[in-house]
Design a binder for these strands. Structure first.
Lengths: 209, 209, 209, 209
DNA sequence: TATGAATGAGTCTTCATTCAT
DNA sequence: GATGAATGAAGACTCATTCAT
């Protein structure tokens, strides 16, 4: 699902010479090592040394590239964030979305999530105790409300804005935790039913508005 | 809201002699210290030493009572867990619940959650990286499904069981994350609207069934 | 030359029980190890590990007792500082000091300095780059001026106070650096001549006043 | 105060071609950067990287020019050392110096010192823990004695040579430490009084001889 | 000549846990 | 039952220095 516009986010595609390529190569090794080790041991239990060992690099080299583990995770997340941003933009371009539109969008989102699930698991852990990551939740909620806001459904509604925002928060909460329980805690879920049910809930917000 | 049947969970009320009372006294000091410090610094940042200092106890004493920090948290959570269990039982005794029933129940749950919010925050952190706590999520989900199961709505429904379970998971996800975002991340929410909206969603599951 | 009143500074004499004695014992081991290693490698080159190895203690133990190397040095210097303070008090009690008084005092000071010379060497190094030690020089100068001030020679003099203070600074500078060059750089010096010459310079300050 | 004969010491004036000029240019950049950074952070706290960053040069380039930080400091000190050497020669040419001669010389020395004070501060730090710099003190003392020796006052004196040397050491100690306390520790001192007092002490050595 | 990527070797610091008293 | 001295083990981070380009 790697879209063209996110290739750069993934790779910091070296524009220039050999040096740049070399640098990019190393950076990518760190990212790959991190992804692997985070997947194995989770973010918390992973030490910088673990990543180093996997990447076959030395401690000092790590600090040339990153300030700390959180930093590296952020870098590793870049592709996901970019692709998610693309999805958000697509959502915002929906005009009078149908149930099918929502199903299709959610399906894409599920794909994206499951593609990056282990990294997202690491991110959830980081959110708990990396200062850099804490407080992102609120931001994410606002982003989500924003996403709905842009499709002009909120402001044109007869319902009070506060109520609509509350519903957004509830939808956000639902999908977030659900994805986590499903993709990361391994609860068995029937994919298409899930997409349908969530889409239905999303659609209801429009109908009621 | 401390119900009578949970007093014991909170205190391990000493049945017996002086020794037991003394022991109970010390245990309670640890729990109180833990609650305070977890509230201040969060579970992750809190060291056993922090708790000790607050409790005015010594290192070794701690290990007489608990194996580790997670253990102590579990102990501190006992009152919450007990009261939550009471709530669950009340839910299961609902017969043909009305919207008002759900609103009332959810309202009680919100009370319970907010009463223990800081401790629950600690718990969320612990879930991320304490082996003892990991995997509790699935269990919690199953419990939740069970709760609904007992009110006989699932099994008497015409809808396939899988779908009803899925809806439970979605409701569970929704309220869990919502409570977290509201109570712990500090998102401003209108309480009564929230209760109404959630209750409505819960009620819908019955109607549709 | 260990005076009675400084025994405590040296040892933190345990007033109490076994525990206190044990603690004091360990602390003293650290101090002794530090003195030895500082003498061997100088303060700068000495790592905490070096001291640990010599003391036969573990890293963690060190941090139970001290926050850092500078802290330990400060502790090790306590006896010297105490004895120096005694000397200062003796100086201040001189009434109409004679040349012989100065000679005697300086001689004592030389004894004290040479008794602690290696530790004082470490201190000089620490003054260069331990924040805790930086800025002590000015303080030491003021102390020295104070010492002269107390013998009432400054204030009763016809000379302006500023000039007398300047002379004090010059005397301070002279003896400080001289002791360093002699005792720590190993320049060969005839002790009694040195004492005489310095005393003469000190005496001149009174005469001229 | 840059005398003509020291211009070379400052610049290693390129005699030859373009290459040499280029080389000299880079070297000077390092020196300037070093002076600035040493002044800001002191010698100890300054890392080679700091200097590099300031000079806008790269790691490897540094090692083309210098072996280490101490080396660079030595290079940066060249102008000072040269000018000091000039002063020393002037001193040695004094014939039957008067009090005014000494005052004038000391005044020049104060100028020189304060012009280079921050670099001299760096040097004092380096003396503490750079092998290259350690042991320079003794050498400096001997140089100072030598300076007095050359004016033939020592050898023609009736006093024993040892005593005269001792007095030199005391004068050396005095002015060294005094300059440090004054110029680098920031003790407030009246310049002309200081010059007078020191000169008086120097003059006394002649009189007594 | 100039560079910057890579590193070895080291240092400080923290914390949960044990054991003799 | 309570204590606090001691520690093992690990982790984060820094810096001078080298080497291929």
């Amino acid at each position: 699902m790697q879209t063209k516009e996110c290739a750069d986010a993934a790779s910091h595609e070296p524009s220039g010479g050999l040096r740049a390529a070399q640098r990019e190569f190393t950076r990518r090794r760190f990212v790959e090592a991190a992804v692997t080790v985070f997947a194995e041991k989770g973010y918390v239990e992973t030490t910088i040394d673990d990543i180093l060992r996997r990447a076959g690099a030395s401690k000092a080299t790590f600090y040339v590239y990153y300030d700390n583990k959180a930093n590296l995770l952020l870098d590793a997340l870049a592709p996901y964030r970019c692709e998610y941003a693309v999805l958000v933009r697509q959502f915002q371009q929906l005009v009078e979305p149908t149930l099918a539109d929502f199903e299709s969008w959610i399906s894409d989102y599920v794909d994206l999530y499951s593609e990056h699930r282990l990294l997202l698991g690491a991110m959830h852990q980081a959110e708990v105790f990396e200062p850099e990551f804490r407080g992102r939740t609120i931001e994410a909620v606002r982003n989500y409300i924003d996403m709905w806001d842009k499709i002009k459904l909120i402001e044109t509604s007869k319902e009070p804005r506060d109520l609509l925002e509350l519903r957004c928060v509830l939808l956000y909460s639902q999908i977030q935790r659900f994805m986590y329980v499903w993709q990361l805690e391994g609860l068995e879920i029937d994919r298409s039913s899930a997409v349908c049910e969530i889409a239905a809930a999303w659609y209801r917000i429009i109908k009621s508005a």
